[in-house]
Simulated scan of single mutants.
Amino acid sequence: MTLIDGKQTADDIKREIAAEVEEMVAQGKRRPHLAAILVGHDGGSETYVANKVKACEACGFRSTLIRYEDDVTEEKLLETISRLNEDPEVDGFIVQLPLPRHISEQKIIEAIDYRKDVDGFHPVNVGRMSIGLPCFVSATPSGIMELLKRYGVETRGAKCVVLGRSNIVGKPVANLMMQKAQPGNATVTVLHSASTNIKEACAEADIIIAALGRPGFVTADMVKPGATIIDVGTTRVPDATRKSGFRLSGDVDFANVAEKCAFITPVPGGVGPMTICSLMRNTLLAAKKEIYN
């Protein structure tokens, strides 16, 4: 069994990005600039945005954090997005989700200039990805594909089961795994809450990408020997032995599944670090105008 180390891989990629940025600066070009809008004080969002700021520092980027309270109006948020769209000094920006209920997340996503949409959520980027055109690919699916590539996991002709059909992970990663590329060229089955015979389908899979948000859902009897498991789930579960009172659990029963696998990602330290790393790569691409002029 090979443990796929997302943290080490992400650190390697950030060093590669930093070296490229220093070359850009040496050539008289400005540093890439990522902006983030954070609304409210959700604990998970606070941590995630703080990690993005640290990643920007590691990559040699400029970063700007724009904060609003929970009661910010949708109109005010749209005004800020319009300003960032027009700012030539900002290469890419994100609006951290989730947003308060009185704000339409879809309206906010569609207001972002797709050429600065480094989260890869705008319909233009989603549509271009679905037909294999250059675009900003959303961070988590992009990170998954990079891990498969760097660890040399064979995907061509492989049976791949994707557990979950979210717009953020399930749908895009299934699309990427189907495309004529490496990684890719897999035979993909997407399973979700309305699917039947889930256990049987998983037991035939060469690759399982679990993105359900259901701790320990994938058990040893659902995994064939030599399979590759990518665990996207990160759910807080109570743990009295921890000072925090909880621990992070993936969608896979790691303790019992790992010994059957050829490759497996841990939680934490697997897909999670790659998500932020992929955002950094998209920001570099935006600054270099490699996708959209």
Rank of each mutant, 00 (worst) to 15 (best):
T2F: 13
G6P: 08
G6S: 06
D11C: 09
D12I: 12
D12G: 02
K14W: 07
A19D: 15
A19E: 15
V25H: 06
K29I: 07
P32N: 09
L34H: 02
A35H: 08
I37W: 01
G40E: 04
D42R: 11
S45L: 12
K54T: 06
A58Y: 05
F61R: 05
I66Q: 00
D70K: 12
D70Q: 13
D71S: 08
T73C: 02
L78T: 08
L78V: 11
I81D: 12
D87K: 07
E89H: 09
Q96I: 08
H102N: 13
I103T: 10
S104K: 12
I109W: 05
A111D: 09
D117G: 02
P123G: 01
G132Y: 12
S142F: 15
M145W: 15
L147E: 10
K149S: 15
R150H: 04
Y151S: 06
I168K: 05
V169C: 03
P172I: 02
M178S: 13
Q179D: 11
K180E: 15
A181V: 08
Q182F: 11
P183M: 03
G184F: 11
N185D: 09
V190K: 07
T196L: 08
N197A: 11
I198V: 15
C202Y: 06
I208H: 14
A211E: 05
P215A: 02
P215K: 05
V218C: 07
K224H: 08
K224T: 04
I230N: 06
D231L: 02
V232P: 00
G233T: 10
G233H: 04
R236F: 03
V237P: 10
V237A: 00
D239H: 12
T241H: 03
K243Y: 07
S244C: 07
F246I: 07
R247V: 03
S249F: 05
D253I: 06
E259M: 05
I264M: 13
T265F: 14
V267L: 06
V267S: 07
G270S: 10
N282C: 11
L284A: 09
L285W: 11
L285Q: 14
K288G: 10
